[in-house]
Simulated assay, not measured.
Amino acid sequence: MPTVLRFNGLRAVIYPNDHRPAHLHVIGNGCEAVFNLHCPQGPPELRENYGFSQKDLAGIQAKLAEALLVACNEWGAIHGQP
């Protein structure tokens, strides 16, 4: 699973055998969340959360919004254009 972003001790990954729509799995601190990217305009949107606090999720969403073009390009490189 390629790690496409790292921030605040977390990893944002794209699974090579995953499905559309374009999304990232954010993993760390014993938690995981999935964000749909809504490429190329965004904003990233929480789809699933397993353990992150609302404060953590807001910070993650802000970081993903900053890196949206990188994330969308990485998704496209692995799965084709979103």
Rank of each mutant, 00 (worst) to 15 (best):
H23D: 06
H23S: 06
H23E: 04
L24T: 00
H25S: 03
H25D: 07
H25V: 01
H25G: 00
I27K: 03
I27R: 06
I27T: 02
I27V: 12
G28T: 04
N29V: 07
G30T: 05
G30K: 12
E32N: 11
E32Q: 14
A33D: 04
V34Y: 06
V34I: 12
N36T: 13
N36Y: 15
H38G: 11
H38Q: 14
C39A: 03
C39N: 02
C39P: 04
C39F: 02
P40A: 04
P40M: 03
Q41V: 14
G42I: 09
G42N: 08
P43I: 07
P43R: 07
P43L: 08
P44D: 07
P44I: 00
P44T: 05
E45N: 15
E45V: 10
E45K: 15
L46E: 09
R47H: 15
E48I: 08
E48L: 13
E48M: 12
N49M: 13
N49G: 12
G51S: 11
F52V: 03
F52K: 00
Q54K: 13
Q54A: 15
Q54N: 15
Q54W: 10
Q54I: 12
Q54Y: 10
K55R: 14
K55H: 14
K55C: 10
D56Y: 08
L57I: 15
A58S: 14
A58K: 15
A58D: 11
G59R: 06
I60Q: 10
I60T: 07
Q61R: 15
Q61N: 10
Q61C: 09
L64C: 04
L64R: 06
L64A: 04
L64E: 02
L64Y: 00
A65Q: 11
A65F: 01
A65G: 09
E66M: 06
E66C: 04
A67R: 07
L68T: 00
L68Q: 01
L68V: 01
L68S: 03
L69Q: 10
L69G: 03
V70F: 02
A71P: 02
A71E: 04
C72D: 01
N73R: 10
N73P: 02
N73I: 02
E74M: 04
E74Q: 07
E74D: 04
E74F: 00
E74I: 00
W75K: 01
W75R: 00
G76P: 01
